[in-house]
Design a protein around this nucleic acid. Structure first.
Lengths: 195, 195
DNA sequence: CGTGTCTGTCAGTGGTTACTGACATTATAA
DNA sequence: TTATAATGTCAGTAACCACTGACAGACACG
């Protein structure tokens, strides 16, 4: 991220996201944010009025919406292993792009009311879609159904666990260690769920 | 947790853990901690010298060590599903007991250097043990081996994901929603890994 | 040129917070 | 009872921090 060209608001928002995702809301001063953005503290307050509103604006602007729906509408081919692979890759892509906001919502749930709920929408949606997908696949005779919601949940939790683990160990490019995991976990679940 | 009887130090440590795990290090004042413990702020500083040292003491005192080693030495019966079940239950037991400290280490990694590393020791140990277990089981012809470390990692990540998910949705008794997950996930992995 | 918009500087305000010293109080135990 | 240790009260310090007002310079556009 270069700091030079964009509008002042954007520079402030990005600086806020970067700093707060690392040190938490109370661990970062408005002075620091402005400085990182290459602007004066005064400008920060002129644009956003308060520290709180700055973070809310950052959240509104830089969070990515429901691409999962598209996956389930367009890209699935009704072959278990291939579809799980598509889903897993897309999941990590979306989570990866939102990772700093996710970190903020984990660290400062209390401070930023509503953040967490909005962040959890994607995974919840995915759980619902995946459950439906399992049901349909079962009807097609291509999946061994026991408790579809719990099966979907288990798959999601394995992906979520790997994502959070990666977040916390602090790597900037989750793909590196995530790739072999995605492959192995998809194979494993495909085997478990194939009739 | 009753506040009345224990020694002053203990009451301060527990109050600190409870508050900081919910609101983060910078979100809690020494005044609040002392008040919650039913003591004066002065007493807090007389006991621990500084806020930082108080948290370090809390961490030293209230974290639980390597019970996983015992599991692998004593309780396993070399039947895949049963053993996975034992492992999963023990894992959630240990994580559950440490949950507040884990929350602190997630929220304030920067603030409390060394916390995270020490917290991650248990899972790392478990990964190693589980990998070895898989190797032995494979030699016994009771497990279908592909990439043992990655298989173990996938199992762990599903358990870790469910744990963190539970942490964040704020339930105080993780067992409630965790139990059916543990059962279903163990069945699922047992099926995937059985030859 | 002149006008408006964006930005910076500076000096401040009011509130909070970790931490301290002096002294008084209470409880314990010999 | 008396000595000792643990705790409380109170007042205060020094630093930090979100946020403000007044003023000035820079730049674009007519």
């Amino acid at each position: 991220m270069d700091i030079s060209k964009q509008g002042s608001s954007d520079r402030l928002l990005l600086a806020a996201i970067n700093l707060v995702s690392e040190r938490g809301y109370n661990g970062v001063t408005t002075q620091e944010i402005a400085e990182t953005a290459g602007l004066s503290e005064k400008t920060l307050f002129r644009h956003f009025g308060s520290k709180q509103k700055l973070l809310e604006a950052a959240f509104d602007r830089y969070h990515y919406a429901e691409e999962m729906r598209k996956i389930f509408a367009e890209k699935l081919v009704w072959e278990l292993e291939e579809d799980l692979f598509t889903i897993s890759r897309t999941y990590h892509e979306i989570m990866g792009r939102n990772r700093k906001l996710i970190q903020i919502s984990i660290k400062d749930e209390g401070q930023m009311p509503g953040f967490k709920e909005r962040m959890q929408q994607h995974p919840l949606q995915l759980l619902e879609f995946l459950t439906n997908y399992f049901n349909v696949m079962s009807e097609k005779g291509k999946l061994r159904l026991t408790d579809p919601k719990m099966q979907a949940f288990t798959f999601m939790m394995s992906q979520y666990g790997a994502f959070v683990n990666d977040l916390e160990t602090g790597k900037n490019y989750p793909d590196i260690a995530l790739k072999p995991f995605v492959e192995e976990s998809v194979r494993l679940f495909a085997r478990a769920l194939t009739p």
